[in-house]
Design a binder for these strands. Structure first.
Lengths: 200, 200
DNA sequence: TATTTCGCATACGTATTGTATGTCAACTCA
DNA sequence: TGAGTTGACATACAATACGTATGCGAAATA
């Protein structure tokens, strides 16, 4: 008890974000009702408007929180790779699996882009893309892969993983689909490696 | 004049779809008002509910129309490729450019998935994915590329193109971005070709 | 302790949706 | 051909959810 005001504010915001996250994940953004949402958190819409300016603002906050978690999880995995390439591949596969989780899928892949537009334009930019981009640049510096535009390549790879995730999560046998996706992904990534045949 | 009833029905539906398409493309699905939408078509919401069952139903119809157009455009381009590989690559690049168009981007890439869920589960399935899948299967039969799960690979490729399109359309210099994306895409696709180094 | 700040609740007006009902033209069939 | 039926579409209504304007009370400040 006897919390500072600052702490109480942070707590209400956290409660709202938590509640919103659950509601958005379960019902989707459009079907989520702000009255229910705030009531669940023991508050009213007044608090929501005060802190986040509206429904979209709340979504932004939720997305930021989720992305921070994803970034943490990803960098933990990436740091374990013995080589840059391994880190890159393992991170990609981890991303594939994370993006197959219902909450992330619904909020980050479906509602986020529709409401907030292209993820790369988000306030706290899509961290996962920058992470991929960094990996690519590092690999190029090391001479492990071909020279490409790192941002373009990162967006392609990210999109590929997202597309596969959407498929995996909505298929009858996600386990099997995931395996197939990883196999195919590795084939694609082999194109990055240097010793390749060229074609017109 | 003196149209048959059937023709008039088709005409009202077409008018609604046309109007919805414009509205969805311009304001997005969520911000599109059905009253405005139908008034623009010289009708009321009554007609909309009668023919499409609601806002989502109208979106489905709009998406179907757009996808049919995309399929037509794509197959025209694909049929021109001298080899299966060329057809595949040209089709992919064409898809990349089509998906960068504002209308397609807004309706098919952003609102569609958010409202209707994973595109591969749509009524008239995402034709472009099946098209990609068919190309891959054909290339495998011809022995031109490695053996992979065609559906998984198609979804990866499709996702990659979509991700790149989103980026291209929202960047300062779409022209340059498009070129970079194509270059990087070709590098990735080279991974499909047979004579590749393997890696663990 | 008087005053201000501001976190949050309450109250209100409005916009948009879905449904229930009504109407009139076009088709069916004797 | 004309009475009956269907159904395409409009109108009317009720419910929901949103944004804003306002109010209150506790903490911060002096």
């Amino acid at each position: 008890m006897a919390q500072k005001r600052e702490d109480m504010i942070a707590e209400t915001q956290a409660k709202l974000i938590k509640s919103a996250r659950e509601s958005f994940a379960q019902h989707g953004f459009a079907e989520s009702c702000m009255d229910d949402l705030t009531a669940e958190a023991g508050l009213t819409r007044g608090a929501l408007y005060h802190h986040f300016g509206g429904k979209k603002g709340l979504l932004k906050a939720v997305i930021q929180q989720i992305e921070e978690e994803m970034t943490t999880r990803l960098s933990a995995i990436k740091s374990k790779g013995p080589t840059t390439w391994d880190a890159f591949i393992n991170g990609s596969i981890a991303y594939l699996n994370m993006a197959s989780e219902p909450e992330i899928q619904r909020i980050i892949l479906l509602d986020g882009p529709a409401v907030l537009g292209d993820p790369s334009q988000w306030p706290r930019k899509n961290c996962c893309i920058s992470s991929t981009q960094l990996s690519i640049e590092k690999l190029m510096e090391e001479g492990a892969i071909q020279r490409v535009d790192s941002l373009a390549m990162a967006r392609l790879i990210n999109g590929a993983l997202l597309g596969a995730s959407l498929w995996i999560a909505n298929t009858d046998d996600p386990q099997a689909a995931s395996r197939k996706a990883v196999d195919s992904f590795l084939v694609l990534m082999s194109g990055l490696l240097k010793s390749n045949t060229t074609f017109s």
